[in-house]
Design a protein around this nucleic acid. Structure first.
Length: 566
RNA sequence: CGGGGUGUAGCGCAGCCUGGUAGCGCGCUUGCUUUGGGAGCAAGAUGUCGCGUGUUCAAAUCACGCCACCCCGACCA
């Protein structure tokens, strides 16, 4: 391919809308353009990258025994009412009516459509197992689309759905997909990690997320280098190995005017933050709860919800009614008629500091049993932090950030039951399908890969997803017949050898050509110049390398081939 | 959805406070020069100043309303 016949749309200046590296670079390199909030056009260069990712995904899915199909983006609302997701989904689900006033949705995933297909086509255990997948456009009306392609409203996803006669077979396919995903992300050249996850709104039991590791990731992952345990922070169990020590000091009320945060109180009293306890006030079912956490710990809302059910934070008014004290100075001591749940770490504390339930005062030297009753309940309420013991007991946790690019679930019979989708088993009894579902954010993979692979000059594409494998930069193509002839010949030879090469034959100064090819992130670069050609040489440089190296022109082809297959 | 911010040429921005001729850099077009890391000179083209209403002799500029977009939070997979 020649740039003169392609479409290069690089930008020298950075569009103001882009905050993170991948978004900035995708705009600047001319991979995408924004059409509306969270909705992007994929330019020719971007489409090539997208197709490369799709090709790897397709190959590995096929190899794993899944079969590709394609389901409609527009789906009847009826099906969604049947599964219950019409009600369960919030405004994220894009609904609309057709001219006959019938309800439709834009698919955010396709459980309903595929389950509908299965119930009419898969009627016997003999037709099982079956795994259908598609690579399709999805739409979710995100409350806040951001980070360009990373959290857009329209995106491309590989979504696969498997149907099984029993749980054992579902679990077999689940492991198969775990391995397949591991192969896919490895082949894509990404640094990633599979982590235990919360099944969330899709429902079901077992679930793993695949995260590309990147500073800008929206998710926090707890992992243990010693054991390779990994879980989303939402889910990772916080274990406390401390045990409570006997009280050594007396209870004392100290003035802390204006100090409402644990950090401020700790600073004022010159004590470590770990000696303070914060009380988080929440409401559930009209009942007032005080959740006790160590000052340096954060509430895990997911764990809390699992423990007490759907809850919300109490308003200042509710706090004053329940405790007769302004928010900021509340605590468990003397709290009447409220449920107190202590985090495990708090339950192990002695001589701690907490709010006195009196404006402007805190208590020091607080001890359970002596100064207040033991908490009515002790539970895991907090997010794990770096240094916590790993829940498997084999080391200490680190916290890394990741971008979720894949998620596998065991749905079990959530959809098949709701939609009466089942089969006859060998004994002739009707059973609902055991279902699995497996997603990969294809467009998100592109952004995540760039997030993980870039430098000051631009994108550094992993070879498997680079829009072109190599670029050819002839210096003075439009001026020098010698350069032109040599470049044309090399370009054609490389293409014939099956190498995806982009020759930059634009009439631009060398600096422009170099800068663009670097920005676009093509992994291998060959430069031809009059000077080099006179000595029979070409010049090679890898995108990650600093210095180019000279080599004989006629060895470039075989050299590149070797590099590409390395 | 709550809070904050921004809408002026394809992109990045100034002008607005203090109302009166629409500006700069990049990009684009043409010509000449230049040609190994985003060239130089010269000449040009490009604007419903987000939309609407109002105030005024006069609105990019002031007021009100709306819309779009961005950021933080909440929410969500």
């Amino acid at each position: 391919m020649r740039t003169s016949r392609f479409f290069i749309a690089t930008l020298k200046e950075v569009p103001a809308e882009a905050e993170i590296a991948s978004h900035r670079l995708m705009l600047r390199a001319g991979l995408i353009r924004r059409l509306s909030a969270g909705i992007y056009t994929w330019l020719p260069l971007g489409v090539r990258v997208l197709h490369k990712v799709e090709a790897v995904v397709r190959q590995e899915m096929n190899r794993a025994g899944a079969i590709e199909l394609s389901m409609p983006v527009v789906q009847p609302g009826e099906l969604w009412q049947e599964s219950g997701r019409w009600q369960a989904y919030g405004p994220e689900l894009q609904r609309f009516k057709d001219r006959h006033e019938r309800d439709f949705v834009l698919q955010p995933t396709s459980e309903e459509a595929v389950t509908d297909l299965a119930r009419s086509e898969l009627k016997s255990y003999r037709t099982l197992p079956q795994h259908f997948y598609q690579i399709q456009t999805k739409f979710r009306d995100e409350r806040r689309p951001r980070f360009g392609i990373l959290r857009g409203r329209e995106f491309v996803m590989k979504d696969g759905y498997s149907f099984h006669a029993d749980l054992a077979d579902l679990e077999r396919e689940y492991r198969n997909m775990y391995d397949t995903y591991t192969r896919i992300f490895t082949r894509l050249g990404l640094k990633f990690r599979a982590v235990a996850a919360d099944p969330g709104a899709i429902g079901g039991t077992g679930s793993h997320e695949f995260h590309v590791l990147a500073e800008s990731g929206e998710d926090a992952i707890a992992w243990c280098p010693q054991s390779n345990y990994a879980a989303n922070v939402e889910l990772a169990e916080a274990v406390s190995t401390d045990s409570r020590k006997a009280p050594t000091v007396n209870l004392k009320k100290v003035p802390t005017p204006g100090k409402t945060k644990c950090e401020e109180v700790a600073a004022l009293l010159k004590i470590p933050l770990e000696k303070t306890v914060k009380a988080v006030a929440v409401m559930h079912d009209g009942e007032f709860y005080l959740l006790l956490l160590r000052g340096d710990h954060d509430l895990n809302e997911l764990k809390t919800q699992k423990l007490i059910g759907a809850f919300r934070f109490a308003t200042d008014g509710e706090i004053e009614t329940a405790l007769k004290c302004k928010a900021g100075y509340i605590g468990p001591v003397g709290a009447k008629n409220v449920k107190v749940i202590a985090d495990r770490a708090v339950a192990a504390m002695g001589d701690f500091v907490c709010g006195a339930n009196e404006e402007g005062f805190h208590l020091t030297g607080v001890n359970f049993g002596r100064d207040l009753p033991e908490p009515s309940q002790v539970a895991d309420l907090r997010n794990v932090v770096a240094g916590d013991p790993s829940p498997d007991g084999k080391g200490r946790l680190e916290i890394v950030r990741g971008i979720e690019v894949g998620h596998i679930f065991q749905l079990r019979t959530k959809y098949s039951s709701a939609m009466k989708a089942g089969f006859l088993d060998a004994a002739g009894t009707h059973k609902p399908f055991e279902m699995g579902c497996y997603g990969i954010g294809v467009t998100r993979v592109v952004a995540a890969a760039i997030e993980q692979n870039n430098d000051a000059r631009g994108i550094v594409f992993p070879a498997p997803i680079a829009p072109f494998a190599a670029c050819l930069v002839p210096i003075g193509y439009q001026k020098s017949a010698a350069v032109r002839e040599a470049a044309d010949r090399l370009h054609d030879a490389l293409e014939q050898a099956g190498i995806d090469v982009l020759m930059d034959d634009r009439d631009e100064r060398p600096g422009v050509l170099f800068a663009d090819m670097d920005l676009i992130g093509i992994p291998h670069r060959v430069v031809l110049s009059e000077r080099g050609l006179a000595a029979g040489n070409a010049e090679y440089k890898g995108r990650r390398e600093d210095k180019p190296r000279e080599m004989p022109l006629d060895s470039i082809g075989s050299f590149l081939k070797e590099r590409l297959h390395a």
